[in-house]
């Protein structure tokens, strides 16, 4: 564990807490893409298959449980909770995310560390996480103005993987034989997808104005 990875995990945890706060406090999920939440639930379920088989540390196990639990709880809330699901704008959240799942699965069968179920699922979860934010970003551009909590949620979600890139650079130079090309390249693509969001987020923060994404 290094400071970059710990900072990344904490930033990721904050993004989840901000989303839970928004849904719990406002009893609304307006501006949140259910499809991105479903993709993230699939990312965690396919990545943490080894949750009970190989124990790494209490921290690792706890965080995996938190990410799996919170992503499933958010999907459940947006689909089942009477008040929350009413605020879900399904006619705006129209990204064909099943194509993302299919494309990532095919890529994972072709490019992986080993052709085993666990490694193919791991690579699938890495590729899927890289593109999971797309439905959310498309929804934000369609819905124009972004409420603060939603903006903060997306910001922290994007920032966490940037910390992980620093972590991979750090580990590459400090540990022998450490290579995570699949995770690193996917992580760079993932962070790059947030580039324009980060730009408009910074502008809105600098001008102390509402976050506006160009349509």
């Amino acid at each position: 564990m290094n400071i970059f990875r710990f900072a990344g995990d904490m930033t990721h945890l904050i993004s989840v807490l901000v989303l839970l706060l928004k849904i719990y406090a406002t009893k609304s999920c307006s501006g949140i893409s259910l499809k991105t939440q479903e993709l993230y639930a699939l990312v965690f379920l396919s990545r943490y298959l080894d949750l009970f088989t190989n124990y790494i540390s209490l921290y690792n196990t706890l965080m995996k449980l938190v990410f799996i639990g919170s992503s499933l709880a958010i999907v459940w809330c947006m689909r089942m909770h009477h008040a929350v699901k009413r605020s879900y704008d399904k006619e705006v959240d129209t990204f064909r995310h099943y194509y993302l799942v299919l494309a990532c699965f095919v890529l994972a069968t072709l490019v992986n560390e080993q052709f085993t179920l666990r490694e193919v699922c791991w690579a699938f979860s890495i590729y899927l996480e890289a593109v999971a934010i797309l439905p959310q970003l498309v929804l934000l551009q369609r819905s124009g103005n972004v409420d603060n909590l939603t903006g903060q949620y997306v910001f922290f979600l994007g920032a966490y993987r940037a910390f992980y890139i620093l972590n991979w650079i750090y580990r590459y130079f400090t540990e022998q034989y450490f290579t995570r090309w699949i995770a690193c390249i996917a992580g760079i693509v993932q962070t790059a997808l947030y580039a324009d969001f980060f730009y408009y987020y910074f502008i809105s923060w600098k001008n102390n104005a509402k976050l506006q994404l160009p349509a």
Binding site: R5, N60, K64, E113, W122, A183
Partner: peptide
């Protein structure tokens, strides 16, 4: 043999 890549990251 190739050690199974231990995925120690989240």
């Amino acid at each position: 043999g190739t050690e199974a890549t231990m995925h120690d990251e989240l």
